Computed example of a mutant assay.
Amino acid sequence: MTLSQSVAVTTHTWTWQGLPIRYQTAGTSGAPMILIHGFGAHSDHWRKNLPVLAETNRVYAIDLLGFGFSAKPPAGQPLSYTFETWGQQVVDFCKEIIGEPAFLIGNSIGCIVALQAAVLNPALARGVVMINCSLRLLHERRRELLPWYRNYPSAILQKVLAYQTIGQFFFSRIAKAKTVKKVLLQAYGRKEAVTDELVNLLLKPAAEPGAADVFLAFIGYSQGPLAEDLLPQVQCPVLVLWGDRDPWEPIDMGREYANYPMVEDFISLEGLGHCPQDEAPEVVNLILQDWVHKKTV
Score class of each variant (00 low, 15 high):
residue 16 W to G: 10
residue 37 H to D: 09
residue 255 R to T: 05
residue 11 T to K: 03
residue 290 D to I: 00
residue 224 G to E: 13
residue 187 A to Y: 08
residue 72 K to D: 01
residue 193 A to V: 05
residue 118 A to V: 10
residue 278 D to V: 03
residue 132 N to F: 08
residue 11 T to G: 02
residue 240 V to T: 12
residue 173 R to Y: 06
residue 1 M to I: 10
residue 106 G to P: 04
residue 204 K to G: 00
residue 148 W to R: 10
residue 104 L to P: 05
residue 259 N to D: 13
residue 155 A to M: 13
residue 180 V to I: 15
residue 132 N to S: 13
residue 169 F to S: 02
residue 206 A to H: 12
residue 236 C to N: 09
residue 23 Y to M: 10
residue 169 F to Y: 03
residue 221 Y to R: 04
residue 146 L to R: 04
residue 120 L to I: 14
residue 78 P to K: 07
residue 101 P to E: 07
residue 283 V to A: 01
residue 106 G to W: 07
residue 54 A to N: 03
residue 271 G to W: 08
residue 196 D to S: 10
residue 12 H to D: 12
residue 121 N to G: 02
residue 142 R to M: 12
residue 123 A to D: 15
residue 201 L to V: 15
residue 44 D to P: 03
residue 90 V to M: 12
residue 205 P to Y: 02
residue 1 M to A: 14
residue 69 F to E: 11
residue 221 Y to E: 07
residue 170 F to A: 15
residue 274 H to M: 10
residue 133 C to S: 15
residue 243 G to V: 02
residue 223 Q to V: 08
residue 30 G to C: 08
residue 290 D to A: 14
residue 70 S to N: 12
residue 61 A to Q: 03
residue 6 S to P: 00
residue 58 R to F: 05
residue 207 A to H: 13
residue 25 T to S: 15
residue 288 L to T: 00
residue 265 D to Y: 01
residue 259 N to C: 08
residue 262 M to N: 15
residue 98 I to H: 10
residue 245 R to V: 04
residue 121 N to K: 13
residue 171 F to V: 05
residue 241 L to R: 05
residue 133 C to A: 15
residue 114 A to Q: 06
residue 113 V to D: 07
residue 241 L to N: 05
residue 50 L to K: 00
residue 172 S to N: 14
residue 141 R to S: 08
residue 292 V to Y: 07
residue 204 K to W: 00
residue 275 C to P: 00
residue 160 V to G: 00
residue 240 V to Q: 08
residue 209 P to A: 03
residue 93 F to M: 12
residue 195 T to I: 05
residue 205 P to L: 02
residue 45 H to P: 00
residue 27 G to S: 06
residue 217 A to I: 04
residue 264 E to Y: 04
residue 21 I to N: 05
residue 272 L to C: 08
residue 46 W to Q: 05
residue 187 A to F: 08
residue 88 Q to A: 14
residue 179 T to P: 00
residue 40 G to Y: 07
residue 38 G to F: 10
residue 70 S to G: 10
residue 127 G to V: 11
residue 184 L to W: 11
residue 240 V to Y: 06
residue 297 V to L: 12
residue 31 A to F: 06
residue 31 A to Q: 15
residue 134 S to T: 11
residue 236 C to D: 08
residue 49 N to Q: 13
residue 28 T to A: 09
residue 268 S to G: 09
residue 112 I to P: 02
residue 49 N to I: 06
residue 70 S to V: 11
residue 93 F to Y: 12
residue 67 F to P: 01
residue 257 Y to D: 02
residue 204 K to R: 13
residue 49 N to M: 07
residue 112 I to T: 15
residue 293 H to K: 14
residue 157 L to K: 14
residue 208 E to V: 02
residue 272 L to I: 08
residue 2 T to A: 10
residue 54 A to F: 00
residue 118 A to I: 11
residue 71 A to K: 09
residue 132 N to L: 09
residue 67 F to E: 03
residue 286 L to Y: 05
